[in-house]
Computed example of a mutant assay.
Amino acid sequence: MAGSQDSQDLGKALLRIVLGVLILMHGIAKLTGDSGIGFVSKLVADVGLPAWVAYGVYIGEVVAPILLIIGLWSRLAALVVAINMLFAVALVHTKELAMLSKTGGWALELQGMFLGAALAVALLGAGRFSVGGINGKLN
């Protein structure tokens, strides 16, 4: 089964579902938290971008992860998550790019893993175990 289509599709499903759930938790926190989108709005304004750009965080952390979880338009959803992570690194974590954490890992290992997983899903697609199916649009 190691090289079978079933195991490959199961691996794709696992990757996109775990990525989707973990990113969605960040989106839910923004939807239900006290600060809402205020923190992101301030960051966007501080770099001179229009305020409406901040609402992209809801697309990248709520809509795209839901699409990943169900396996619909997964390649596009993964690209949105990847762009969201690039914005997060650029707006919040730039100073940590060359830093190590207290435990010796890269300070941005979580963001790096999210970015890498999103790019992997964008390249691999959703696989057969998805709403869109193996030949689904952008899957």
Rank of each mutant, 00 (worst) to 15 (best):
residue 2 A to S: 11
residue 3 G to H: 10
residue 4 S to M: 10
residue 5 Q to Y: 05
residue 6 D to Q: 14
residue 6 D to A: 15
residue 7 S to C: 12
residue 7 S to R: 13
residue 7 S to P: 00
residue 7 S to K: 07
residue 8 Q to M: 14
residue 10 L to H: 07
residue 11 G to I: 13
residue 16 R to N: 03
residue 17 I to G: 02
residue 18 V to G: 01
residue 18 V to E: 02
residue 19 L to A: 09
residue 20 G to C: 06
residue 23 I to D: 03
residue 27 G to W: 02
residue 28 I to V: 15
residue 31 L to R: 07
residue 33 G to H: 09
residue 39 F to Y: 15
residue 40 V to S: 01
residue 40 V to Q: 00
residue 42 K to Y: 12
residue 45 A to F: 00
residue 48 G to F: 05
residue 50 P to V: 02
residue 51 A to C: 00
residue 52 W to H: 01
residue 54 A to G: 12
residue 58 Y to I: 11
residue 59 I to N: 03
residue 60 G to N: 07
residue 62 V to D: 04
residue 64 A to C: 07
residue 65 P to G: 13
residue 66 I to C: 10
residue 67 L to T: 06
residue 67 L to Q: 03
residue 68 L to N: 00
residue 68 L to F: 01
residue 68 L to A: 10
residue 70 I to E: 07
residue 73 W to M: 15
residue 73 W to I: 10
residue 74 S to N: 01
residue 74 S to V: 09
residue 74 S to D: 00
residue 75 R to D: 05
residue 76 L to R: 08
residue 77 A to K: 00
residue 78 A to K: 02
residue 81 V to E: 01
residue 82 A to Q: 02
residue 82 A to K: 00
residue 83 I to A: 03
residue 83 I to Q: 03
residue 92 V to S: 14
residue 93 H to Y: 01
residue 95 K to T: 13
residue 101 S to I: 06
residue 103 T to D: 12
residue 104 G to F: 13
residue 105 G to S: 11
residue 106 W to E: 05
residue 107 A to T: 08
residue 108 L to F: 09
residue 113 M to G: 06
residue 114 F to M: 09
residue 117 A to F: 11
residue 118 A to W: 00
residue 119 L to W: 01
residue 120 A to W: 09
residue 121 V to E: 04
residue 125 G to Y: 10
residue 126 A to D: 05
residue 126 A to R: 08
residue 127 G to T: 12
residue 129 F to S: 12
residue 130 S to E: 04
residue 130 S to D: 04
residue 131 V to G: 11
residue 131 V to K: 08
residue 131 V to E: 09
residue 133 G to Q: 11
residue 134 I to L: 13
residue 135 N to Y: 14
residue 135 N to K: 15
residue 138 L to V: 08
residue 139 N to G: 03
